[in-house]
Design a protein around this nucleic acid. Sequence first.
DNA 1: TAATGATTTTACGCTATGTAAAGTCATTAT
DNA 2: ATAATGACTTTACATAGCGTAAAATCATTA
Lengths: 213, 213
Amino acid sequence: MPPRPYCSPRRAAAAQQTRRRILDAAAVQLRQSQGIGAFSLEGVGRAAGVTRPTVYNQFGSRRTLLEAVFDDLAARGGLHRLGAAMGDPDAGAGLRRLIAIFCDFWSFDHALFASLYNAGGTGAEFEESLQARNQRRRHALAVLVGRLVDGEGKTDQGVRDELVDILFAVTSFQFFRALSAGHRSADEVRRMIEQIAADAVRRFSAPPAATTA
Amino acid sequence: MPPRPYCSPRRAAAAQQTRRRILDAAAVQLRQSQGIGAFSLEGVGRAAGVTRPTVYNQFGSRRTLLEAVFDDLAARGGLHRLGAAMGDPDAGAGLRRLIAIFCDFWSFDHALFASLYNAGGTGAEFEESLQARNQRRRHALAVLVGRLVDGEGKTDQGVRDELVDILFAVTSFQFFRALSAGHRSADEVRRMIEQIAADAVRRFSAPPAATTA
DNA sequence: TAATGATTTTACGCTATGTAAAGTCATTAT
DNA sequence: ATAATGACTTTACATAGCGTAAAATCATTA
């Protein structure tokens, strides 16, 4: 006996609302409980006016919920500008635009990112999810580096990887937060990162000059 | 009635052993449970052949236990060389020595640091402890920067702070881990950090040249 | 209007937390 | 010698969160 069709607009809408309420509550809880220590599905449920099993019903697991929060954030954080930046005919300008885009992104909801990136509580599980989401940035940087270094001396793969890793590190949330140091504006930090990135690119493009400080 | 004197060598020794066993068990548990998610005092107690209240008796709180693990690590990690490095008459060489010292330190027990720095589980509480312990590095960098930039053009405090923050960021565990990328040797990473640091120092020492990449 | 199935809730067993009260045992004083 | 003392450890308790299974709710469909 094949299950008969069933589509309920009223219930579907209600469920959608529930989902939204849970998602918002989760974001609030995360922002408040800096770190993931005090972030409990119990609390999320309470704040959303719903019981915990409902949270599980909507987002299979803690990890999936966190991913949903992150993705919701990403959708509003201005990352869509990345495509245009990558299309910039000047690869150097593209890199600067990428840096600006991510500085905006990280400062867009700093408290939430701070909690999200203190991912110890969830173990390596969620850490993997974050890494997967950062792969887009990494890939974009790899493409830019390919264009930047192209035609110059160093086409060695390992060396290019070094530059990509450096740019990846200095455009990470952790680096942004470190340079923010609790008081610097997003724009000041952007300028600092830009210069560090420019130095790195210069070093990898130019013929190996003196290495002394 | 003043409490009478009591000093028990036998019991004190036993307690000391218990403490050691707990500390070692905690380190093992941390290394295994990457992140602090799966790190429970319950598990530590079990692994140490002791009940949980004993853990509390020896180290007042979860936080104190983690601090003890970190400090135990620091004692064996070679940080004692910092004094000599700071005494180097050449501030640039001192900086390079500091970088080498911390690269050694971070790679000394990488798995343990990785867990320790995924501090989300413990909330901001333990994060503060870590920050406090990193202040020594920050202070050392501030001193070196003072000597490096001294006599040159930029004596502006804010600008010097920028350089200190950059050097602080690139000598952090997170940056080391990012550049390690799961495959690079500590020495390769050291070389990369050295160059980034050198570039930063050069930029802050030299009269402001072109800022283009 | 009774059966269906999506959604939510109640209920259960488990692990961990932090503390308080009781137990164990080497040491001290009478 | 032996009873009191106090350091160290454990048993016991109350609470909170986790994840799942079974029941309850209720809009839709036959």
